[in-house]
C-alpha cells in the first residue's frame, strides 16, 4: 500500500484549540459584518427586539423609582389623630403632650388647624375657595409616631387614643402605606408577567429570524455537511447571529429607556417640586444596563438555539 500523501494529517491539540478559537473569532466578527452589510433589515429586527425589551425595562425602572420613593417615608407607621372641631388649641396641645409622655409613643407633632389651613392653601392652590369660607373647616391634628409597628399593640394604642373625648378619629397611615406596598407588589408581578411574555416574544422573533437565515443558507449548510462539517460547526454562525441580534436589540432597548427617562424627567421634577421635594428620576444604573444587555444577548442565543435545533437536522445533503 502506497501511503505517501494519503495519510490524514493530524494537527496537535494546541493547534486545534487555536484554530477553534480563531474560527469563533472569525464567525463572531463575520456575522456582525454580515448584519451591518444589510443595515435596513438588521435594524428592523433590532428595533422589534428593542421595543419588546424596552417596555418591561422602562416599567421596572419606573417601579424601582416608586419603591425608592415610598421607602423614603420609612416603614414606620404614623397615626394622624384628628380632633373634634370644638377642641381648643390649648387643650389640643395639652393632649399632644400627654400622648408624648406615654410609653408606647416615641414622638408627637401638633398641627394646629390654622397652620394646616396655611399649608393647604399654599400647596393646593385652592386659596380663593378657602378664602370664601367663613370658618376654617380643618381640625387640629396630632401626628403620633408610635414606638411599635406591631399591628396588635398599635390597635390598642389607637383604641386608647380614640377613647379621648377630644378625638374625632384616628387614621392609621400604615393602612395606605400597606395599600401602596400591595399595589407595588401587584405592579411588580404584572411587570414580571409582562416581561416573561415579551421575552417569549423575543425568543419567537429570534427563532423565526434565524429560521429564515438557515433557509437562505441551505445550500451552504449542505456543502459544509458534505465535506465533513460537524453540527457544531454548522450551528456556530447562527448562534453568533442570535447573539448579535439580541445584543443589538438590548442596545436599542437601552436607548429607548434612556430616552423615555429623559422625556419624563422634567415633569417628574416639576411634580416633585410641587411637593417641595428635590426628587429626580434615577436610571437603571450600571448593573441594570449590564443586566439588560446580558438578557438581550441570552435571549438572542436561546432563540437561535431553538431554531437551529429544530431546523438544522432537516437539512441533509441530497
Amino acid at each position: 500500500m502506497k501511503t505517501t500523501g494519503a495519510t490524514v494529517a493530524i494537527t496537535g491539540t494546541r493547534d486545534r484549540l487555536r484554530a477553534w478559537i480563531a474560527h469563533h473569532r472569525r464567525v463572531c466578527i463575520g456575522t456582525l459584518r454580515e448584519l451591518l452589510e444589510s443595515p435596513l433589515s438588521s435594524l428592523m429586527t433590532w428595533l422589534v427586539i428593542g421595543i419588546a425589551l424596552a417596555l418591561p425595562a422602562i416599567l421596572t425602572v419606573f417601579l424601582q423609582n416608586v419603591s425608592a420613593l415610598s421607602g423614603d417615608w420609612g416603614g414606620e407607621p404614623r397615626l394622624s389623630v384628628y380632633l373634634v372641631q370644638t377642641a381648643g388649641t390649648a387643650e389640643a396641645r395639652a393632649l399632644a403632650d400627654t400622648l408624648e409622655r406615654q410609653g408606647d409613643v416615641s414622638e408627637t407633632r401638633f398641627i394646629s388647624s390654622e397652620q394646616a389651613l396655611v399649608d393647604f392653601r399654599n400647596r393646593s392652590g385652592f386659596g380663593d375657595v378657602l378664602a370664601s369660607l367663613d370658618r376654617n373647616p380643618l381640625p387640629h391634628v396630632i401626628e403620633v409616631v408610635p414606638v411599635t409597628a406591631d399591628p396588635l399593640e398599635l390597635g390598642s394604642l389607637v383604641a386608647r387614643i380614640e377613647a379621648d373625648n377630644l378625638v374625632e378619629s384616628v387614621a392609621v397611615d400604615l393602612a395606605w402605606l400597606e395599600r401602596l406596598y400591595g399595589l407595588l407588589q401587584f405592579a411588580k408581578r404584572l411587570v414580571t408577567a409582562l416581561g416573561i411574555v415579551l421575552a417569549l416574544g423575543v425568543l419567537l422573533i429570534m427563532g423565526n429570524t434565524i429560521r429564515l437565515s438557515i433557509e437562505n443558507r441551505r445550500q451552504e449548510i449542505e456543502v459544509i455537511k458534505l465535506v465533513g462539517g460537524t453540527d457544531g460547526f454548522v450551528r456556530r454562525p447562527f448562534l453568533y447571529l442570535g447573539f448579535w441580534y439580541g445584543l443589538g436589540g438590548a442596545l436599542f432597548a437601552l436607548v429607548l429607556l434612556e430616552a423615555s427617562l429623559l422625556f419624563l424627567s422634567s415633569p417628574v421634577e416639576m411634580l416633585a417640586q410641587s411637593y417641595q421635594d428635590d426628587y429626580a428620576l434615577s436610571g437603571p444604573g450600571l448593573m441594570g444596563i449590564l443586566l439588560l444587555l446580558l438578557l438581550g444577548a441570552f435571549l438572542g442565543v436561546a432563540g437561535a438555539v431553538l431554531a437551529v435545533s429544530r431546523h438544522l437536522r432537516d437539512i441533509e445533503p441530497r
Binding site: 494537527t11 486545534r16 451552504e220 456543502v223 465535506v227 465533513g228
Partner: peptide, 24 residues
C-alpha cells in the same frame, strides 16, 4: 461541483481545512 457561490475560490477550497480545524 457543489461550490459556494458567495465565496471566492480560496475560501471554497479552504472549507474542509477550516472545518477540520487547521491553523490559518
Amino acid at each position: 461541483h457543489q461550490l459556494l457561490f458567495d465565496r471566492n475560490v480560496y475560501d471554497n477550497v479552504a472549507l474542509p481545512l477550516t472545518i477540520a480545524g487547521y491553523s490559518p
